[in-house]
């Protein structure tokens, strides 16, 4: 199995091998469960990251925010999380303790309770230091109706802030690479933004995704495919920190393929787009949100990106580590 990097390969794995055995209608960050009168968003995610600690965050913090964000992407207020830790024998107690603390703090910040969990210790080298799985539930806001099938021509794509911080931070941390001083992971809960967004624009809100592995390019390609539409992005509207852009240039990477842990993409009808944007921008940390593109009709379900000069590029899903191709 070589499906780790997100994007096309993992999509193929999920759809080809897993979905046929599961009761899944639409592949989203969170699933919905109806409990009497209440609609609940339900999700689980596993976290493996090397190194465990990196500028701006750690695996414990990711494990909380990742699940909180998946719930938020279902238009739901995160309520409770349970967790499983798989610990490699020999891991120092201080390291473990630091991660538990990080989980606790992230949960407090995100206003969600960790209500239970399980711990397994496995033999040395049967795991890499620490794996964390979290599962969570949230209360779906009755005003939202999210589905790729509602996405139509003219809808606007809103991005919550600069992209690529997390993925580049991890890449540098892994190699102990001190190329660019000021990059740190963007890990955070996005629920405060989503909550305000729902208040301001619920009827126009159609689809959300947090662009983690595979980056924005993969999330939007999945949208284009699921909604049977095409997407035109305005390259200049997509914010990238100069340090991240510099790192991408020297590494031959496209920021659109880099993972994020504290950003989300929302598709909002044209009518509600400005209200939605303002609502996000008014939450501290959301100032750089922007409308980055628009949905159009085409029999090719693709993602394009237009720049003022440089023309229009086709943005493909990430296939793994991009190979050199310039002759």
């Amino acid at each position: 199995l070589a499906h780790g990097a997100g994007g096309k390969a993992s999509r193929r794995l999920i759809e080809g091998l897993l979905v046929p055995y599961l009761n899944v209608k639409e592949l989203n960050d969170a699933a919905y469960v109806q409990a009497d009168q209440t609609k609940i968003a339900f999700t689980a995610d596993s976290f493996v990251v090397n190194p465990l600690r990196f500028p701006g965050g750690s695996i414990g913090e990711l494990a909380i925010n990742g699940t909180v964000n998946d719930i938020a992407m279902g238009g739901a207020k995160p309520l409770a999380i349970v967790t499983t830790l798989i610990i490699e024998a020999g891991l120092e107690t201080e390291i473990l303790e630091a991660e538990i603390k990080a989980m606790h703090e992230a949960a407090e910040k995100a206003n969600v309770a960790i209500v239970g969990g399980d711990t397994k210790v496995v033999e040395h080298q049967k795991a890499d230091k620490l794996f964390i799985t979290t599962a969570g539930i949230g209360l779906v806001d009755p005003r939202v109706n999210l589905s790729a099938s509602r996405v139509k021509k003219g809808d606007k794509i809103i991005l919550s802030g600069p992209i690529g911080d997390h993925g580049i931070t991890i890449l540098f941390a892994r190699g102990d690479l001190d190329l660019e001083a000021d990059i740190k992971s963007d890990t955070r809960s996005v629920w405060p933004f989503v909550s305000k967004l729902i208040n301001a624009a619920a009827p126009g809100l159609k689809w959300m995704r947090d662009p983690t592995r595979g980056g924005m390019a993969t999330a939007l390609n999945e949208l284009a495919r699921d909604a049977q539409v095409a997407i035109m992005l305005e390259e200049e509207a997509i914010k990238v920190h100069p340090e991240v852009r510099g790192a991408c240039e020297i590494l031959g990477l496209d920021p659109m393929h880099i993972a994020n842990e504290g950003q989300f993409i929302a598709v909002v009808s044209e009518e509600y787009a400005q209200d939605a944007l303002k609502a996000i921008q008014q939450v501290p940390g959301g100032e750089q949100a922007a409308i980055i593109g628009e949905v159009f009709e085409s029999d090719r379900h693709i993602v394009l990106s237009r720049s003022s000069y440089g023309g229009t590029r086709a943005i493909d899903m990430l296939v793994g580590d991009p190979l050199p191709r310039i002759c």
């Binding site: 240039e249 020297i250 031959g252 991009p322 050199p324 191709r325 310039i326």
Partner: peptide, 13 residues
Amino acid sequence: LIGGDAAATYPLQ
């Protein structure tokens, strides 16, 4: 080839 295609962009690389 350091940074893949980036090496084709930056001769110093």
